[in-house]
């Protein structure tokens, strides 16, 4: 343990020296009784607990690992048993000295819900996560330093609607990497992009290539559909409900329902066609009408008479 601590100290000191180099050139000779350079201030003591429940699929787990990688101030924990009450999470946060929490709540290895919470006082938000692509499965060209501080880019609608501005504050506190965090890097080289489209929040991660706005995507990609905002952390009254939210089970059912009538419709149509054919088997040519039934000769006379009248 002692060794580890030492290493960390050394690293931070070298970083500090590097920053100073960019500002002022240090003199070559220094006196031994000179005061030691003080550690840079690490004010923002935000820590985020990132973990999942049993029932998350491999893809969800990879997404979780991506997010942990993005956030140097994140702490991971063991998978939680689904039987436990979610209120236990607050205690877990307290135990691991975290004041924010991202919980990956998986159901049946299929649906993923994400909880963003400000522990222990709240608020907390429950999201449904859709169209997940982890950084490993996306073959994107961008890359950034592990633990570098990202810019957080928000859409205009994060200012317009109160529910989104609450989400924005939450995202800023969770995804914003604290300045001078020992595991972070002293450069800003990526942008986390949050935009609202179709009542969902689309998450994208870009690398800053140069300062004129050239960017390249890094990954991961996912879409958050907010379901509810609670006043407390994993508890309390509901502040907001998404009126457009449809549960994934229901969407699946609707999709299935669409297919359900295909077979019966087909059957009905075939039957109808058959009966139609039976009723009028020779309706194709108009001449055949004459031979259908009755006396042919009389009909022919009738037709001739008609033609004469017409002339």
């Amino acid at each position: 343990m002692a060794k580890k601590n030492l290493k960390r100290k050394q690293k931070t000191q070298t970083e500090v020296v590097k920053e100073d180099e960019s500002k002022v050139i240090l003199p070559l000779v220094r006196r031994s009784d000179e005061p030691v350079i003080k550690k840079a201030k690490w004010i923002n003591r935000e820590r985020v607990l990132v973990f999942g429940t049993r029932g998350i699929s491999f893809q969800h787990r990879h997404l979780m690992k991506d997010i942990i990688k993005l956030l140097p101030h994140a702490k991971s924990a063991n998978k939680m048993e689904r039987k436990e009450n979610l209120f236990v999470v607050n205690e877990m946060c307290k135990m691991s000295h975290c004041n924010k929490c991202i919980l990956f709540d998986g159901r049946l290895q299929r649906d993923l819900y994400m909880w963003f919470s400000n522990s222990p006082d709240g608020p907390s938000i429950k999201f449904n996560v859709e169209s997940i692509f982890t950084s490993a499965e996306l073959k994107l060209t961008g890359n950034c330093l592990k633990g570098s501080r990202p810019l957080l880019s928000f859409d205009n609608s994060f200012d317009e609607h109160p529910q989104y501005s609450l989400l924005r504050e939450m995202f800023v506190q969770i995804f914003g990497v604290p300045d001078h965090h020992p595991k972070s890097q002293p450069f800003v080289d990526n942008v986390l992009n949050f935009s609202v489209l179709d009542n969902r929040i689309w998450f994208r991660n870009y690398q800053i290539l140069d300062e004129n706005g050239a960017i390249a995507e890094i990954g991961p990609r996912f879409v958050l559909q907010p379901i509810r905002i609670f006043k407390g952390s994993f508890c309390g009254e509901t502040l907001w409900e998404n009126p457009f939210y449809v549960t994934p089970a229901k969407t699946r059912r609707l999709l299935k329902d669409n297919k359900k009538d295909k077979y019966t419709n087909n059957k009905i149509q075939r039957k109808a066609k058959k009966t139609k054919e039976l009723l009028a088997p020779f309706r194709v040519k108009p001449e055949n009408e004459i031979f259908r039934d009755g006396n042919v000769k009389e009909k022919a006379k009738h037709v001739i008479a008609k033609n004469k009248k017409a002339f």
């Binding site: 928000f154 994060f158 501005s165 800023v172 914003g176």
Partner: peptide, 19 residues
């Protein structure tokens, strides 16, 4: 709720931009 948990840190800690 926003007022209760909003952080009072300067922009250099938050790095958020509305674009």
């Amino acid at each position: 709720a926003i007022a209760s948990f909003q952080s009072s840190l300067p922009w250099s800690e938050r790095l958020d931009i509305v674009a």
